[in-house]
Design a protein around this nucleic acid. Structure first.
Lengths: 160, 160
DNA sequence: CAAATATATGTAGTTAACTACATATATTGC
DNA sequence: GCAATATATGTAGTTAACTACATATATTTG
């Protein structure tokens, strides 16, 4: 979206540009893994990474952790199970729960990915450590939204 | 996504948080229009706003302007045509082109929306003018990506 | 000036998220 | 301790973007 749109409709414009930036970064991430000869689907990453760190989780906790609705997680888990990267078992203490974990194949994949993360972190830092640091800016905006929502702020202007 | 995920996988984490922030902002935008008694679908905004500013455009230029693939634009245009908010005619100079414009109803809708933009801009400024200004950060990151891509930067670390 | 290429629009099918609903098990509180 | 409520998982269907392909018209080039 071009400059004049941004000016007059800041809200949507920010949203659109954030989205685009996010897409760009995601695509580049995939390319980096490819450059290392690691072929995997980026959409798997949040689940795999979380299981790598936490060993075992049930579906809802995993969904909360990665920030997806649980049906999305379930469908990712189905794929990952087909790929034999994860497996699941019943929680004996609470039989409603399905505990998910990486298989040996899954752990092995994540081990080959681990060295790439350092490169990614460095390149990310390089790009985002500009005068107005993007990560900090996001943190600050999230904090200011938590303090007082967009709608509340807008309403303050309306009632004037 | 939580802190430990962010630390180790900065790239995806930023992407996810940008996406979430973007969603949040979009949803709030809808609520503000609702507070003004204007009922419309936010996904229509980019097309309507662009046509409001530029009067008449063909499908591909419009798509480029709003940053969507053209089939997405076409499907939005279909909806908007059904709502009688836009109409289209053939370009006489180049009959391949379909020129799209707002109807009177469309122009009227955008006129009622215009006063809201000011409120949105002010509230957006309030939220994003923190120590690390989000808009400026986005601009800077976009500029630094343009100068040297993520992949190139990452490759510099790989070849060491 | 006709053949090859490029551009504009449109259709079909895919994808990856979502919400709403259904069911099973656990927990809470009268 | 059982009825009501809450939680965990799963399924079905929707949505809004996408890519790949098809066709029509314009433009370029040998």
């Amino acid at each position: 979206m071009e400059q004049n749109v941004i000016d007059a409709s800041g809200l949507l414009a920010i949203s659109t540009r954030l989205q685009r930036l996010s897409d760009q970064i995601r695509k580049d991430g995939l390319l980096i893994y490819k450059a290392f000869g690691i072929d995997f689907q980026p959409k798997w990453f949040p689940v795999l990474y979380t299981l790598y760190k936490k060993s075992t989780m049930n579906v809802v906790s995993l969904s909360d952790e990665i920030g997806y609705a649980h049906p999305s997680t379930i469908s990712l888990l189905k794929e990952l199970e087909k790929e034999k990267l994860i497996r699941s078992k019943k929680d004996k203490a609470d039989t409603r729960k399905r505990l998910v974990e990486l298989t040996e194949k899954g752990t092995a994949l994540l081990s080959t990915m681990e060295p790439v993360w350092d490169v990614i972190i460095k390149a990310t830092a390089e790009i985002t450590n500009t005068q107005n640091n993007l990560m900090k800016a996001i943190n600050e905006v999230e904090a200011s939204l938590k303090e007082k929502s967009f709608l509340e702020r807008a309403e303050a202007y309306i009632n004037k």
